[in-house]
Computed example of a mutant assay.
Amino acid sequence: MQFVTRMIALTRAIQLRRQYREINKALEQFPVNVRRQLAAIALREFANASKSEFPHLYATPPEDKYRAWGSGTDIGLERLRSDNLQVRLRGAALWLAVAYHETKDSPFGEQQDLHRQLMRSLRSLKETIPASELDRWMIDDAEAA
């Protein structure tokens, strides 16, 4: 059984890594003002995902809850490929939030490595926001909660 679990985790890590390359490439191509918009959208997606019962299954339709993993990353990647900028930003933010929660506490090395790469991408997004605006966002989110 451990072998099967390990193979499933390895397969998922390969799939997420392939998707991450596409997400990261898009993040690098966005201009600074668009990255700021993405950071704001991602902050909301992370808040919404953390409120759900199973954050790694955020945005997964109810009929798909019993699959080996959710479909939030697939939905996010599909949206990233849209021609509409707002849809692309929402897709990237969704992908980042779901992949973060999916890899966060993983005992598997491949997924831990991907989680570290995700954290670097999130840090680079955070660095595009001036500190005064970031403080304002944090205060607004605390008041909304």
Results as ranks from 00 to 15, higher is better:
Gly91Phe: 09
Leu125Ser: 02
Gly91Lys: 04
Leu134Arg: 07
Glu133Ser: 07
Gly76Glu: 08
Ser106Ile: 15
Arg123Asn: 14
Thr73Arg: 08
Glu110Gln: 13
Leu94Gln: 15
Glu133Thr: 05
Arg116Asp: 08
Trp95Asp: 05
Asn84Arg: 09
Ala99Ser: 14
Lys126Trp: 07
Gln86Cys: 05
Leu125Phe: 12
Asp105Asn: 13
Glu78His: 10
Leu80Glu: 04
Leu77Ser: 11
Arg116Glu: 08
Glu110His: 06
Arg88Thr: 06
Ala97Met: 10
Ser132Phe: 10
Asp83Ile: 08
Leu118Val: 08
His115Glu: 04
Arg81Val: 02
Leu125Ala: 06
Ile129Tyr: 00
Asp135Gly: 00
Leu118Met: 02
Leu96Ile: 15
Ile139Pro: 00
Ser71Gly: 05
Lys104Gly: 01
Gln117Tyr: 05
Pro107Met: 08
Thr103Ser: 13
Ser71Lys: 13
Ser132Trp: 12
Leu122Ser: 13
Asn84Pro: 01
Leu96Arg: 02
Arg81Trp: 01
Asp113Pro: 00
Leu118Gln: 04
Ser124Asn: 03
Lys126Glu: 15
Ala93Tyr: 10
Leu85Ser: 00
Ser71Val: 05
Ser124Glu: 02
Leu134Lys: 04
Pro130Glu: 15
Leu96Thr: 02
Lys104Ser: 04
Gly91Gln: 04
Pro130Ser: 06
Leu77Thr: 10
Gly109Asp: 07
Asp135Asn: 09
Met119Arg: 10
Ile129Ser: 00
Ala131Glu: 14
Ile129Gln: 07
Arg116Ala: 12
Met119Glu: 09
Leu134Gly: 01
Glu102Ser: 05
His101Arg: 11
Glu110Gly: 01
Leu77His: 13
Glu102His: 06
Phe108Arg: 01
Ser71Gln: 11
Ser121Phe: 03
Asp113His: 07
Glu78Leu: 09
Arg120Gly: 03
Arg116Ser: 08
Val98Ala: 04
Arg123Ile: 12
Gly109Trp: 12
Ala131Ser: 14
Leu94His: 03
Asp74Ile: 11
Lys104Ala: 07
Leu114Ile: 11
Arg90Met: 13
Gly91Ile: 04
Leu118Trp: 05
Leu114Phe: 09
Ala93Trp: 06
Arg120Ile: 10
Ser121Thr: 11
Thr128Met: 03
Met138Gly: 01
Ser82Ala: 15
Gly109Arg: 07
Gly76Gln: 02
Thr103Asp: 04
Leu77Lys: 15
Leu85Arg: 13
Leu80Lys: 10
Asp74Ser: 14
Leu80Thr: 10
Gln117Ala: 11
Gly109Phe: 09
Ala131Asp: 14
Ser82Thr: 03
Ser132Cys: 02
Ser82Phe: 05
Leu96Ser: 13
Ser71Phe: 15
Asp113Met: 04
Thr73Ile: 00
Asp135Ala: 12
Asp105Ala: 11
Arg88Cys: 10
Gln112Trp: 00
Asp113Val: 05
Glu133Gly: 01
Gln111Asn: 06
Ser106Val: 14
Arg116Thr: 10
Ile75Phe: 08
Tyr100Val: 00
Gln117Leu: 10
Thr128Cys: 01
Asp135Cys: 04
Trp95His: 04
Leu85Thr: 11
Leu80Pro: 01
Ser71Ala: 09
Ala92Asp: 03
